[in-house]
C-alpha cells in the first residue's frame, strides 16, 4: 500500500514540479545562448542586458523551483489529510503512518531532483563545465571530505526537520475543533521557541565538551579564534538535536493521524 500511496503522491504534483524543473532549465539554456552570443559579439549593451536578464531569470527560476516544491508539498499535506480530501485518505485501508511517511519521502525526492536541476542549470548558464568526477572527488576524496559530507548531511537533516515541524503543526492544529489554522500557527511558534531553546542547550553542551580539553577557559573565551573543533561540535550538537526532534515530531504526527482524526 505504501508503494501505491507514493505513486499517487508523485502523480499529484508531477505536472507542476516537472514544469518548474523545465522552466529553470530553459532559463539556463537561454543564459547559455546569451552568454555564447556575448562571447562571439563582444560586450555590447544589448548583449550584456540580454545575458544578465537571462542569468537573473535562471536564478529566480531555481529559487522558485525550491520554494514551490516546499510550499505546495506542505499545503498538500493540509489539503489531503485535514481538509475535504481527508475523507478519502482516511477511509482507504492504509495505515496512518504510511499516509504521513509518504509525504516526507516524496517531497525529499522532488527536492533532490531540484538540486540536480539547479546544478545543471548553473553549469549551463555560466557556461562552465564542471566535471562530475571532479565534484565527486572533492566531496568524497579530498581533505575536507568529512566536513563536506557532514554539511550535506546537516542540510538534509535540516530539510527533513523543516517538513516534520510543518507537518506536526498541521496535525496539532487539526485537533482544535474551531480554529485549526490558529492552533497550527500557535504550535509553530511554540515549537520554534522550543527548538531555539534546545539548540542553545546543545551549543552549551558542545562548548562544555570542547572546553573540557582546554586549560584556561577565560583565555579561550577572550581569544578571537574559536577553539579547535568548536564549530564542528556545534554543528554536530545541532544535528543531534534536529534528529531527535525529527523523530519526536513525526511520532506525534503519526499518533494524531491514527488516534485523533478529527475531520470537520
Amino acid at each position: 500500500m505504501l508503494g501505491k500511496l507514493i505513486k499517487w503522491e508523485f502523480r499529484a504534483n508531477a505536472g507542476l514540479f516537472f514544469g518548474m524543473y523545465f522552466f529553470a532549465l530553459i532559463c539556463a539554456a537561454l543564459s547559455n545562448i546569451a552568454g555564447a552570443i556575448r562571447e562571439k559579439t563582444g560586450n555590447g549593451t544589448i548583449s550584456i542586458f540580454f545575458s544578465s536578464t537571462c542569468m537573473i531569470m535562471t536564478l529566480l527560476a531555481i529559487v522558485a523551483m525550491f520554494a514551490v516544491i516546499v510550499i505546495v508539498s506542505v499545503t498538500r499535506y493540509y489539503d489531503n489529510l485535514v481538509k475535504d480530501q481527508g475523507y478519502l485518505m482516511h477511509t482507504i485501508p492504509v495505515k496512518p503512518w504510511q499516509l504521513h511517511i509518504t509525504k516526507l519521502i516524496v517531497p525529499m525526492v522532488w527536492l533532490a531532483g531540484a538540486v540536480l536541476v539547479a546544478l545543471l542549470s548553473v553549469t549551463a548558464a555560466t557556461r562552465t563545465m564542471f566535471s562530475f568526477s571532479e565534484i565527486f572527488d572533492t566531496i568524497f576524496r579530498s581533505e575536507d571530505s568529512s566536513k563536506i559530507i557532514g554539511l550535506i548531511g546537516y542540510m538534509i537533516v535540516a530539510v527533513i526537520s523543516g517538513f516534520s515541524i510543518f507537518y506536526v503543526c498541521i496535525n496539532l492544529g487539526s485537533l482544535s475543533a474551531t480554529s485549526k489554522g490558529l492552533m497550527g500557527f500557535v504550535s509553530y511558534i511554540v515549537i520554534y521557541f522550543i527548538n531555539q531553546a534546545l539548540n542553545l542547550v546543545a551549543m552549551v553542551v558542545a562548548m562544555l565538551i570542547v572546553f573540557s580539553g582546554e586549560a584556561d577557559v577565560w583565555a579561550v573565551l577572550n581569544s578571537d579564534v574559536p577553539p579547535n573543533g568548536f564549530i564542528e561540535a556545534t554543528f554536530v550538537a545541532a544535528g543531534i538535536v534536529s534528529v531527535i526532534c525529527i523523530v519526536v515530531y513525526n511520532l506525534i504526527s503519526m499518533y494524531i493521524l491514527k488516534n485523533k482524526v478529527n475531520l470537520e
Partner: peptide
Amino acid sequence: TKEIVSYLPERTYFS
C-alpha cells in the same frame, strides 16, 4: 473495517 465499509460523505473528496 475500512476494507469493507464504503463511505459517501457529503463533500467532494477527490483532488
